[in-house]
Design a protein around this nucleic acid. Structure first.
Length: 543
RNA sequence: GCGCCCGUAGCUCAGUGGAUAGAGCGCUGCCCUCCGGAGGCAGAAGUCGCAGGUUCGAAUCCUGCCGGGCGCGCCA
């Protein structure tokens, strides 16, 4: 069996093929499992294929497993040392050292692309995230959105999708006008209006805008928004978050896009007048109730503008549109999904990801989020405090749908207590070993004919490294970049164990193959670097 | 009241049908003639919220209940 850049997928395929052969081409039911068993005496990999086939064949699972095991052995040849039948009928595969050497070679041959491009059907994807109001600074919650959205995009891209990143700018409507009023009030040395913006940054804006005390409110608002956006872009850039487009709500209105969206909905007969207002019949598409688009006073609702934005997204022809929104918006999911379908969007092609809240803690104690009224711990404050690497890693450590406690004390720590440093340290340590070996020596090692008989720690490390393609695929498919924090940490641990048990330079002294161990270290370095890159965290050559 | 999310070790959480449920932190006890000790090893620690059900097999799927978070405007 020739090795590709995803050896695990090859093995999985071989088992699945054998199972299909045994069941006479019957490929109904779920795909056979293929995982790392919980105990070493269960082999390197195990599958429940026989249990599934036995079900459709109506035969005793263990007997089926024996036959299937023989087929798998035949297909895999020298790749496999032996195939055991265990428990109720699991197949346990014990891979040969020869297979280990072959797959290491194949993974290294893939170079920087190793682990990527595994997606079956590449899609054109639009991801909208952060979309912070330009009337205030970005706080800790936006930091989580930024880390998540950016990392998700990196993962989707690496997995093989074509991704566009978009930030929606709410630069229209009454809150923007209030923003302008607040700036002018500060410029005049007055208090902002009751429902205005009271933060210190408003005072600073007022100082930066010459003649603000006498200027038109809308003009001030526009200028203020522009300055705020510039600041946000700087902060995001520093946080290593890039956007392809800042999409202005104001331009949307300027382009009559809301009118257009309403025309589309009217044409599709999903709107109706009632009580002097115009409604969307969103209940047709699963929403709790119908929603107002035009109020009885003639104003568009916010929802109408959002529909226009999504109408625009729809017309741009993406295969998939992902909105990353805050927990406070989840009441809005049902109606937006309904509107999407009313506009003619395919059900399922719009995904709305809801982010849960972030709490800051210091050694477990809840840290104060709001310093004074109108002032928050901002993205910049966070980065100043713990740095980009720690901030991104910690913000990505948890699934997006679970609230996150970020322990600032732990994040500041530069020791094993801190998973970021632990992973980066492992990377730097490998870099140090390879540096010591020298470029020529490394190149030579890669093309050598390896004879290594693998130590269990080397085998465990290699198996860990082979999981990268599926980790990336899963992280992409499940919109779950947080999986990679765990994977990076586990990989660093596996390397540390290998480092402890197997000398790399001078391996011959203990009967090892230095060439093989250099090669394995190099793959470990690449996998760590790739995992960190997908998280937006740096992989230092030295620390 | 309705809807969504969550309930797994002391704490924070992984784990969307497989074998004896994992990790980090914390705790206890160890390890520096060694390529980076910014490291490593071992140990204690769990009725996977509760009760039924489906399945050869459930933390995972279904139903009900309990507990927590958030959301339910002709606001944005």
């Amino acid at each position: 069996m020739p090795e590709t850049t995803n050896p695990l997928a090859d093995l999985r395929g071989a088992v699945a093929d054998a199972a299909r052969e045994l069941s006479g081409g019957d490929s109904r039911g779920s795909a056979p499992s293929f995982d790392r068993p919980p105990r070493p005496d269960f082999g390197d990999y195990s599958s429940n294929a026989a249990l599934l086939v036995a079900g459709s064949l109506g035969e005793p699972p263990r007997a089926v497993a024996e036959r299937l095991g023989a087929l798998v052995r035949e297909r895999l040849g020298s790749a496999v040392e032996r195939v055991d039948v265990a428990g109720p009928g699991f197949l346990n595969l014990f891979m040969s050292d020869e297979w280990c050497r072959r797959v290491l070679s194949a993974a290294l041959a893939a170079g920087e692309t190793y682990g990527g491009g595994m997606v079956d059907r590449p899609e054109r994807v639009l991801v909208e995230f952060v979309s912070a109001n330009p009337t205030g600074p970005m706080h800790i919650g936006h930091a989580r959105h930024a880390a998540y959205g950016d990392s998700l995009c990196r993962v989707l891209e690496f997995a093989g999708h074509e991704v566009e990143r978009e930030f929606y700018v709410n630069d229209y409507g009454s809150q923007v006008r209030r923003f302008g009023e607040s700036i002018r009030a500060r410029a005049r040395g007055e208090e902002p209006p009751e429902d205005g913006y009271r933060g210190e940054y408003v005072r600073e804006l007022a100082e930066r805008l010459p003649g603000a005390a006498e200027r038109d409110v809308d003009e001030l608002a526009e200028e203020g928004v522009r300055l705020m956006l510039e600041g946000m872009q700087r902060s995001l850039e520093r946080f290593r978050v890039r956007f392809d487009r800042f999409f202005s709500e104001r331009e949307l209105h300027g382009r009559e896009a809301v009118r257009h969206a309403l025309d589309v909905l009217e044409e599709r007969e999903h709107v109706y007048p009632h009580d002097g207002a115009v409604w969307l019949r969103s209940s047709t598409f699963g929403d709790d109730k119908d929603r107002v688009l035009i109020r009885s006073n003639g104003d568009w609702t916010y929802f109408a503008a959002d529909i226009a934005y999504h109408d625009h997204k729809l017309e741009r022809g993406y295969d998939r549109v992902i909105d990353v929104l805050g927990a406070d918006h989840h009441g809005y999911v049902g109606r937006m999904q309904a509107a999407w379908q009313a506009l003619g969007g395919k059900p399922g092609s719009l995904e709305i990801v809801i982010m849960q809240l972030v709490h800051l803690t210091e050694r477990g104690q809840r840290a104060q989020m709001s310093k004074r009224q109108g002032e928050f711990v901002t993205l910049d404050d966070l980065v100043d405090d713990i740095g980009v690497d720690a901030a991104r890693f910690f913000l990505l450590e948890r699934s997006h749908d679970t609230p996150l406690d970020l322990d600032l004390a732990r994040a500041r720590e530069q020791s094993q207590e801190n998973p970021v440093y632990y992973v980066q340290y492992a990377h730097a340590r490998i870099a140090s070993i390879l540096r010591k070996a020298g470029e020529e020596r490394v190149a030579e090692a890669l093309s050598a004919d390896w004879g290594e008989r693998l130590h269990p720690s080397a085998r465990a490390l290699l198996k860990r490294l082979l999981e990268l393609p599926e980790e990336v695929e899963q992280a992409a498919a499940r919109r779950a970049p947080h999986r990679l924090t765990a994977y990076a940490h586990e990989t660093a641990q596996s390397f540390s164990a290998f480092y402890r048990d197997c000398r790399v330079l001078g391996a011959a002294e203990e009967g090892g193959d230095e060439d093989f161990r250099i090669a394995l270290s190099l793959l470990a370095k690449r996998v760590l670097a790739r995992s960190l890159d997908l998280l937006g965290v740096e992989a230092p050559e030295q620390m």
